[in-house]
Design a protein around this nucleic acid. Sequence first.
DNA 1: AGATAAATTTAGATTACCCTAAATATATTT
DNA 2: AAATATATTTAGGGTAATCTAAATTTATCT
Lengths: 218, 218
Amino acid sequence: MITLTEENYIKAIYHLGNNGVNTVNTNAIAEAINTKASSVTDMIKKLSEKNFVDYKKYQGVTLTEAGKRVAVNIIRKHRLWEVFLVEKLNFSWDEVHEVAEHLEHIQSEKLIDELNAFLDYPTHDPHGDPIPDKDGNFTHIDKIVLSKAEVGVAYKCVGVVDTSTTFLQYLDSNHIGLGTLITINHKEPFDNSISIKLEHGDIVVSQSVAKNLYLKKI
Amino acid sequence: MITLTEENYIKAIYHLGNNGVNTVNTNAIAEAINTKASSVTDMIKKLSEKNFVDYKKYQGVTLTEAGKRVAVNIIRKHRLWEVFLVEKLNFSWDEVHEVAEHLEHIQSEKLIDELNAFLDYPTHDPHGDPIPDKDGNFTHIDKIVLSKAEVGVAYKCVGVVDTSTTFLQYLDSNHIGLGTLITINHKEPFDNSISIKLEHGDIVVSQSVAKNLYLKKI
DNA sequence: AGATAAATTTAGATTACCCTAAATATATTT
DNA sequence: AAATATATTTAGGGTAATCTAAATTTATCT
Ligand SMILES: [Mn+2]
Ligand SMILES: [Mn+2]
Ligand SMILES: [Mn+2]
Ligand SMILES: [Mn+2]
């Protein structure tokens, strides 16, 4: 039996540790999950007892294979629900995360399998993040951030790094979303801002925006 | 702030007290919720503090208006999710209850409003139970149980009293579901069993079955 | 009415999760 | 290599929800 709280810790460790590959330290978890470091230490001991993490005092934690399976399954559910909310219930991409945080904990294999089929087996969520299959395999897309893209090449927007409401709404107001075609006109060396060509016309985006938009050559 | 546990207690009190009209005693709640009477007493005190129930020691509880609002809202969510599971995700009517028990606690007004619209504003759940609207109003259907129906009159099945898996599967195996047309051939006085005419042919059902099927004249 | 049974509440613990403050270990400076 | 700063853990408690066993109240039976 795994509790909702344990699931959230495991998910945080997975994300903080670069999808389960790196060691994660206590303070990082505390900040991500909005608790105190001492609470994290307590929970880490419990997760270690249950063999979801490997833990050596003062040395941080890494997920075990079992821990990774739990994490990936929650992420699968989270992203499938996000697709559902956007595709079927008219949520916008900046509204789905909070609700999905709750829906992801519903335990029913049939529910997720049927939802997956109902949504026609989506491979990516509304933010361009890949949806793992039942076995935990992700479909990899070869994407780069706008700040590292080349001038004059035709790209398509395929995802975002930051999924905060403010960033997503900024993109909305500039008519940028998944699938939007983007070509770089000019990179300004002074402040690393970038002038890009969209369907509707040209706009200039700051370096922070450019670092948070994933593109793919078309 | 209301916890998931509090919601479950309030819902149980609502159902046990005949939709919030009767006083409910401690043992009944304990049995419904699968806890001990002493735990119920504790929780009742808390609910009373929060003004969801009226409580006098040793005299049982009744829901306040605020308590009824909470109960009806959870029931609304529960039944809408049940419709979703049956209509969209290929669940059968005996599989939905357990999952809906969890989904009903997800807190998002937009989620439920959009789900309601997506399902095309259903008025009844897969068991024939009415779905309250946002203001808590139920659409009332004039239904009677099969055991009180008249011989020779054409009825339609519009609901069940017992929603247990075993009963619902019994109905499935006898090709009885919501909308099934039923006419009584004969009522056997000896054991109160009833011979009924279905589309597929005649069958005899026991008194226990007859007491758990809701019919409506057509 | 008095005795007995049943229902309900109280007392005292337990588990999960979280907190503050103090102690200890590791990392960074000088 | 100290000294200082930072990160982490431990100690000691708190709250929500649960439990068992004992005490108390209400209901039922002679
Ligand atoms: Mn999300
Ligand atoms: Mn997402
Ligand atoms: Mn149900
Ligand atoms: Mn139902």
